[in-house]
Amino acid sequence: MRSKRSLLLRVITYAIILIWIIFTIGPLYWLLSSTFKPSSEAIGYPPTLFPKNPTLQNFKNLFTASRFNFYSYGHSFIIGSGAMLISLLVAMFAGYGLSRVRFKGKQIVMTTILLFQMVPILATLIPLYQTFSQYGLYNTHLGLMLIYATQTAPMNTWLLKGYFDTIPYSIEEAAQIDGLSRLATLYRIALPIAAPGLSASAIFAFFKAWNEYMVALTMTSTVRPYTVELYRFIGEQGDVDWSLLGTAALIAVLPVFILFSFFQKYFIIGMSGGAIKS
């Protein structure tokens, strides 16, 4: 009886996961397969599920004829990493403080921080532009890092606060009795335990910055991230050069995907194990 039921459970579980994976990969496959098709085939009808004559010509075109600015990937990476570091740093302190320190007005502070998450960035774009050009933050990596960090700091604070809450305080108390200061406890004891929470926050902060377009377009001139640079492949009437767009997108997705796989191995899986269970 029991094993039969668990077998059924397994089958259903795998089936749902499989369906979702197909749903996830389908559109991506279709976009990225255009990377290996000549552009006439990429926009042609009927659509081809597999490239008829797989070609690497698009990579060659992208690197030579298209004048695509490859530094844009670098800009995106710097801005993404910087935004991630700033966001993680401020959120980690705030999250820890809100979880571990009892102080007056804590509830109000927490709610206030969360309320910032509801500010639509589009609404603050023009005032931000004015301030940025006044104080020399226009067209700098730092400027964009700060905006993106602001975008993710509130939710990261809450996420980390929630995460710290789930960790028993007793270990840290013991450490404090041993003479460690609050900051040292945070660094040596709470942080390693909070690694899964941190990893999630890091991923949010990075991808928010990596994929953003509208702010980047408005706030940069020479340090344009790749999302803005992609507009090179959109023509006069909004016609799209699918092959080159797909190729440029693939180049953007691949390293991040590898990086992410690496991160999650270290964070979500590796770190969460023994610590919580003890």
Binding site: W20, I21, T24, I25, P27, L28, L31, I203, F207, W210, N211, Y213, Y226, T227, L230, A249, A252, V253, V256, F257, F260, S261, Q264
Partner: peptide, 10 residues
Amino acid sequence: AIIILPWVVS
């Protein structure tokens, strides 16, 4: 990693 893939794309 696969489930999170769409999020990586702009």
